[in-house]
Amino acid sequence: MSGAPILDVRNLSVRFRTEGGDVPAVSDLSFTLDRGETLAVVGESGSGKSVTSLALMRLLPKDSAVTVTGQALLEGRDLLAIPEPEMRKLRGGAISMVFQEPMTSLNPTTPVGAQVAEAVQLHRDLDRRAAREEAARLLDLVGIPAARQRMDDYPHHLSGGMRQRVMIAMALSCDPGVLIADEPTTALDVTIQAQILDLLKRLQERTGMAVVFITHNLGVVAEIADRVLVMYGGRAVEQAPLRPLFSRPLMPYTAGLLRSVPRMELAGRRAGPLPAIPGNVPDPRHMPPGCVFHPRCAHHQPGRCDAAAPVLEAADEAREVRCLRWRELAA
């Protein structure tokens, strides 16, 4: 797993113009994704994870109120610059996506088999029959029992877990090089969550695709990730391989997230909107000056952290961190 990254995101920024003011949802975000790698993107709700993935898929509203800048090179081609017809061929083909909401992400008036077959037919040169066959194979592959019989079921016949499997079958229908999974298990029960994670890992081993796995659950990160990108307030605040990040977080925000893990699991419920770190994510319309995390940071130094904005700097050859005090704190 070496060579050029399959996905290279450079200086991605997304800004929404709203009646209440400008929302800088993502600011100057850069990351890479190697072939076959799983990158976990973590951060509390509202940190810009979904907006990032929708920007990469070019699924944000095509509206003058949305400004996207930067580059996203998928095997050298800039997803943010190519013409729409070309992008449409890549979507669901070379790069595909699984969404958080399995209950509402499938078309309620079309049988699930037809929905998978549509994806197949769009990108592969197969006739209807063959596409249907392929859809049945895919549904079987993602572990839907008696897949052939369920082809004509409507989404509401299926449980949330089964629907998410259908979504995955659809996303995998054309052997994507990159799969973006935006909180694919958040809406599911804990046991189903584990099954879907297993499935994704198995499929990844089989196909060699790279996965951007978005979650706010660090338990899930530990399960699946090779590398982790931590986002806060639309920015990357830390980026590191899994083990070093878990054993020695450099950014106080990451450390805070990690401290909250056992508590969430002890409580026996999904990581909901309850803040694990005191305080709330900043309102993107009124970002705090200096380090955006300083109002909640235990190590905040008045006069310093709220004055100068830290940059993302290399901590070693594999890690990056955005904190003015990371060296002192690490010592």
Binding site: R88, R91, G92, G93, S105, A119, L122
Partner: peptide, 26 residues
């Protein structure tokens, strides 16, 4: 504005087909 229309876009369904097949029928 429903999620499944976004799903159809994510699959690469052409815009005209999204409107006529997916959106219109629903």
């Amino acid at each position: 504005n429903q999620d499944y229309i976004r799903t159809a876009r994510a699959k690469g369904v052409p815009e005209a087909r999204i409107l006529l097949r997916h959106a219109f029928r629903n």
